[in-house]
């Protein structure tokens, strides 16, 4: 990975930061923050689902672990928010490694993998809804207390900036994945697992590494979410909504591409707001549109929005296309 590889992530950060400080209204700024958080969750999903070809329906398990960890540490142990952030990411990654260890050891993939991740997230949701440590159904509320160490800002633009910087870091991580040997192994497994194994790739370890990285990134999204709303409960943390939004953003944006999840999150959430506005606030219309877009994407643009750009500039064979069709004929 060279300095040139970091140029695009850097430009993205500068553009987004410029936007955050361009005098957006409070509501638009909140929307931008939310886009960044979903984009991070989707960037996590993309590592496993896009590069590794393993579709998870349960990334909520990681998101929620990150969110709960930081709030529990802050409210009951008085740990500062940044330490909570690190702990949240690490614990989220550990949950990812645990689920990955069990699933990959049993050779689960495809639909089976999707279903088991969903089941794990649901178990966590039900358990956290009654366990005392997670505040039961009441959830956990973090008291309002501005300060850099508390990761709470009177001026929300600073929080937006921090979220943007993390998105930039995740972009750089994805770029590294594209360039590294580890990433190459992962893509090889996605394309043809038997062949990769025959060539000496340690399939189990590479997959385990991918889910750990993926979970950590999504857990970071959970930490930022909790820090932004200062509240988490079982539905917010482990509910299916975040698994679905992460998956949507990654697929619509373009699987296995660096900018796909970011572009997908911005496009979908922006479109969601517009639909809500046009429909006059009828509940569910935004998600209805998301569902339709998902089907259309899978049917007609398997490479997502990023492949549209590549088609326009004449580059061929978008990565995502093979990601979605990899199991064809298998």
């Amino acid at each position: 990975m060279s300095a040139r590889d970091l140029l695009l992530p850097l430009i993205a950060v500068l553009v987004l930061a410029g936007l955050a400080f361009s005098g957006l209204s409070g509501t638009l700024l909140n929307l931008l923050i939310f886009m960044m958080i979903i984009s991070l969750a989707a960037q996590g999903w993309n590592i496993l689902g896009g590069f590794g070809g393993l579709s998870s329906f349960g990334h909520a398990a990681f998101f929620g672990t990150g969110a709960y960890t930081t709030l529990i540490l802050q409210t009951s142990l008085g740990v500062n928010a940044w330490a909570g952030l690190v702990a949240g990411v690490l614990l989220g990654a550990a949950v990812g490694a645990g689920i990955g260890f069990l699933s990959f050891r049993s050779g689960l993939k495809g639909s089976y993998f999707a279903l088991i991740t969903l089941a794990f997230a649901e178990v966590l949701r039900i358990a956290s809804n009654s366990a005392p440590i997670t505040g039961g159904a009441a959830g956990i509320l973090l008291p309002l207390d501005y300060g850099f160490l508390n990761l709470q800002f009177d001026d929300r633009r600073w929080f937006a900036l921090i979220a943007i910087l993390f998105v930039g870091a995740a972009l750089a991580l994805t770029r590294w994945l594209e360039r590294s040997r580890f990433g190459a192994y992962l893509i090889a497994i996605r394309e043809n697992e038997q062949a990769a194994q025959a060539l000496g790739v340690d399939v189990f370890r590479v997959k385990l590494g991918a889910i750990t990285l993926s979970a950590g990134c999504t857990a970071l999204a959970g930490v930022l979410y909790a820090q932004n709303y200062l509240f988490v409960d079982a539905h917010v943390a482990y509910g299916p909504w975040i698994s679905i939004e992460a998956l949507f953003a990654a697929i619509v944006g373009g699987l296995g591409t660096m900018f796909g999840p970011l572009v997908g999150a911005v496009a979908l959430l922006g479109l969601g707001e517009i639909t809500k506005m046009v429909s006059g606030g009828v509940p569910g219309v935004d998600l209805l549109v998301f569902g339709a877009i998902l089907i259309l994407t899978v049917a007609f643009v398997p490479g997502g929005l990023m492949s549209l750009r590549q088609r326009l500039t004449g580059r061929r064979r978008p990565r995502g296309e093979t990601a979605l069709r990899s199991e064809e004929g298998a």
Partner: peptide, 20 residues
Amino acid sequence: PASHGSDNSILLVTLGLSII
């Protein structure tokens, strides 16, 4: 027609359908 016969795509199409 939408899923081109791939396992993963069918899962995603039916997920999309359920959300719709």
